[in-house]
Design a protein around this nucleic acid. Sequence first.
DNA 1: TATCGCATCTAGT
DNA 2: ACTAGATGCGATA
Length: 184
Amino acid sequence: MEISWVAVATPLPTGPMQLAVTPLGVAAASYAGESFAGLPIGVPRCTDPRKVEAVQGRLAEYFAGRCREFGLPIDWRFASGPHRKVLQRLLSDVGYGRTITYGELASRSGVFEDVAEPGLAARTVGQMMGANPLALLVPCHRVVAADGLGGFGGGPSGMETKRWLLTLEGVLPPTLDWNGPTGD
DNA sequence: TATCGCATCTAGT
DNA sequence: ACTAGATGCGATA
């Protein structure tokens, strides 16, 4: 297995992230997951310290708001077919500080041309985001519902993470008061 | 191959 | 403004 793990400290409410890097690039990323579904944890740490520093550095700069792009190569081995297509489209079309609705992304991806119902395609996109192994690298957090923020998987803290990220990118108003149980 | 869940949208009240 | 219902897809076992 040429996959190795890299732990990255983040200011996210979920704590440190873990990324899986391969010779081709970053293959997977999770907010707090110790392992991905179907991905064995045979490699505890990255064997290439240079990569570790690169990944950690990039993420650190991103979280500090200093860089808008990760600039890291991505290994799409865990994304296949339509899934991969949508993810790439999302990564390509939606930039920093921008958001897109599920429906629009579905429409743009071109994968759902057959589907007439806009809601259906949108939901399918949501599923793909939920199954997205490249959390954060692919801006799945920039995909919002037509009405508002939309949802977010990965447990109850997932929503917090999404808001945190969107606020970091300036999409949401800088209300640093999300702590309150009242929400808004 | 069959079953399950879903990070939505639309329409009606 | 709020609630309820309907859709097909991908993922997993």
